[in-house]
Write a protein that binds this DNA or RNA. Structure first.
Length: 270
DNA sequence: TGACAGGTACATG
DNA sequence: CATGTACCTGTC
């Protein structure tokens, strides 16, 4: 257990921001997460965040995962004072952090996300992990499952995912896994590429278009200038930015603002 | 009942 | 290159 005082951080907002599908609320209001093969519980009271891990693990894994060394206050302050929609979105969900998730897991989960809703995405991801991931035990003695590797998924026969009910996304995942397994797509090379190049490489994967590639760039590779446009963001732009979203003004961190806008559109009042 | 959910591949003009 | 359409599945 380790407790930290952290500003511009809200675990609930981050969990509900749609960027991550394995960060879930527990009965007692804390949150549980499986990432990097590890299990973590997070609880928050105001600015005090408690993590169920050692100080060493916090420093080596979770500080980076939750992006705690990035200056979110500065980004928020540089939003146009006349940009009423973004100001409101920030006051509503300004505790969101852009996580640094694993590339392979993010790629697969966002393939699953297409034409899908968040509860069902989560169900699919959990089934996938339970069937093909590694079973481990958390500190409570409860089982959890890691995310299955490209080599595990890439060697599966075509019908292996039928029981997960992924629909047409099954063939996207299997083909993409086989491409990674065969070396047609090199994930470790993609880690080193700039945003536009990484996006182009990711789009070589079968079932990965512009939107999924941009989500992977933003939520795994931390290219925070990536700006995924989905049905929600399309609606926000149409309604509140009739002359287009000011990408020019917000160059360099537009993806962070995209998350504020997405969260506000999905969870906000109006 | 049918539209919809954080889209994409593939076929046309 | 821009537009149209089929696609799995579950929920309301």
């Amino acid at each position: 257990m380790i407790t930290k005082t952290i500003t511009d951080f809200d675990i609930r907002q981050t969990a509900d921001s749609g960027q991550c599908f394995r960060l879930n609320e527990r009965q007692d209001g804390s949150y549980a997460l499986v990432a990097g093969g590890r299990y973590l519980e997070i609880s928050q009271r105001g600015g005090e965040i408690t993590f169920s891990c050692t100080g060493t693990e916090f420093e080596t894994l979770w500080r980076s995962y939750f992006d705690l060394d990035t200056d979110y206050a500065g980004m928020k302050e540089s939003v146009d004072p006349a940009d009423d929609y973004m100001r409101t979105a920030i006051s509503f969900g300004g505790g969101i952090r852009i996580l640094r998730q694993e590339l392979w897991e993010t790629l697969v989960t966002f393939i699953i996300s297409q034409q899908n809703n968040i509860p069902r995405i989560k169900k699919c991801v959990e089934s996938l992990c339970a069937q093909f991931g590694e079973r481990r035990e958390n500190y409570r003695g409860e089982p959890y499952y890691t995310f299955p590797s490209p080599s595990v998924l890439g060697r599966l026969p075509d019908e292996a995912l039928d029981s997960i009910h992924l629909g047409y996304r099954s063939k996207y995942i299997l083909k993409t896994a086989r491409m990674v397994e065969e070396g047609a797509v090199d994930l470790s090379a993609i880690q080193k590429l700039k945003y536009e190049e990484a996006k182009a490489e990711l789009m070589k994967c079968y079932g990965v278009g512009v939107k999924v590639a941009e989500c992977v760039c933003l939520f795994a590779l931390h290219h925070i200038d990536a700006f995924p446009v989905d049905t929600h963001i399309r609606k926000v732009i149409l309604t509140h930015y009739p002359s287009g979203f000011p990408l020019n003004r917000y160059r360099g961190f537009a993806g962070v603002l995209q998350q504020y806008a997405f969260y506000y559109d999905v969870h906000g009042a109006g």
